[in-house]
Amino acid sequence: MGNFIEIKDVTFSYVNDYDDPPTKNTVIRGVSLEISKGEFVAVLGHNGSGKSTLAKMLNAINLPETGEVIVDGMKTSDEARLYDIRKTVGMVFQNPDNQIVATVVEEDVAFALENIGVPPAEIRERVDNALKTVGMYDYREHAPHKLSGGQKQRIAIAGVLAMQPECIVMDEPTAMLDPIGRREIMNTIKQLNAAGVTIVLITHYMDEAAEAGRVIVMDDGRVIADDTPKKVFSKAEMLKAVGLDVPNVTELTHRLIDEGLDLPDDIISEDECVERLYELLKKG
């Protein structure tokens, strides 16, 4: 029995048939990764680094050009298992407006279950549970377009959660949200992960990635770093070179180290930074 998700030496290209001769744009250039059950993985990379394309390979939306992706023992190229794969790996996208199908919250959450033919009584139960998990049960009879961005995004998560997937892949779920919405989504993500759901979070926000258990950095279709957040963010120069940031506190400690202060180079949390600076600055 191997890992939960195995990505073996995968490549992927978009082919543009409208050009003459057809042009090929390779966006994934040989990626191998393993993700275990229950992990919380953040994927970083600037726009066009291939991270979204890779994410869509985890539930057979994109099929690898070469190499293979295996999800819970199922090859994503195996068409007979397509719906089993999509039931195992759910996906949430950036724009909450464009992934809500129905005009009533609970009908939308039920959508996936209706598609896979779950009996009505069980749909009811699973929809209610999913809505309670994301804290939107009281809104079950509301119209989605009247909700806030964060609430809509939680509905979208509930819609995936109702399928009871092992893993949820989120493609920049907070990019269009305000700080309150972002906090709501991050709390939901952490809560799901604590309940055992594997999370793959694609993001531009370094503070979100700092909360993951593992950070993968992509650039130009390749994985250039794959480690704990502490280790990855301590390579501030490398991250900046590929157009990414480091958390404020990491940047600050790195600058102070450059000034000759004795501080660890892997501070990524606010608490840690406060503690270290306090030790340094306290009188006497």
Partner: peptide, 20 residues
Amino acid sequence: MGLTVPQVTRVFDRLRAMGI
């Protein structure tokens, strides 16, 4: 109010509260 102040601002506010 639901706004997030920069992380450095929070760090130094806390340091001040701790007596630095």
